[in-house]
Amino acid sequence: MLGYFIRRLLAAIPVMLVVALSVFLLLRLSPGDPAVIIAGDMASAEQVASIRAALGLDQPIYTQFFIWIGNMLQGDFGTSLISQTSVLSMITQRLEPTISLAIAAIVFTVLISVPLGVIAAWRQGSWIDNLVMSISVVGFSVPVFVIGYVLIQVFAIELGWLPVQGYRSLENGVGEFARRLVLPALTLSSVYIALIARMTRASMLEVLKEDYIRTARAKGLGERLILFRHALRNAGVPILTVIGTGFALMVSGVVVTESVFNIPGLGRLIVDAVLARDYPVIQALILLTAGLYVVINLLIDLSYAITDPRIRY
């Protein structure tokens, strides 16, 4: 198990290198000189050159890459070109809202989508199956920001139950924190609920066709035992996989949701950084999410071993 963990960790290194290289090259080769942006419109050529030297931009490109990688490995993510503060501190400041939002959304998702998917598979072709499938295909198709505005219109503006926008930190009391988190979390989970419910159903349908389910029926087990003890555990692996690959959806959802609800999280940070061409922040955030993606998928791989005794590393 430990050996497998280490091997997987080593295998992640080339992946991260590819990510780092693409991010680095993409940002360095694109038009727009960071030194010019920092110096401002009125700067002289000498000023630009000195800024360039200070940033190390006059070095050959591969030297820049290795310096950059070296700094990253030491936890130095650089300094924002715009606010002149450390990128790391900018990120940590924005962490709380994003994490709260993501956790709330995942809780909603699991509570709603897995039971829906199981019931839909069990009663394949019934009205409840059709309903779940319809909700799910609509959930995929309606963009997150449209769902966000519909929820605001209904629950905040028409009914006035919840605040329209904004975020309140957990420090300022659980009540307001939760009230302001409900709509964004529902918005963010919409696409996820659709995805996981659909995957749960598909995976359950697959498993329910297996020979051992027929065996379980042949030995006279009740439907509930068959569904939850025999089928769901076997259907778990593909569902977990989708939660992993769905991470990309989560990221795009976070970016959009934070924009719709004016939440000062990492999603806002990256949009602002892109609009301001703040390279170090963009690089750091993309690397961070890619790293998170790799870690999450590693954890999911390891969790297969818990659900499936056939997998021994």
């Binding site: 991470f247 890619a290 790799v294």
Partner: peptide, 18 residues
Amino acid sequence: DGLMAIPGILAAIAIVSL
């Protein structure tokens, strides 16, 4: 694998805006 690890929306944002 490396490309997959970069969430699509971030890659697209970066490419378009730069």
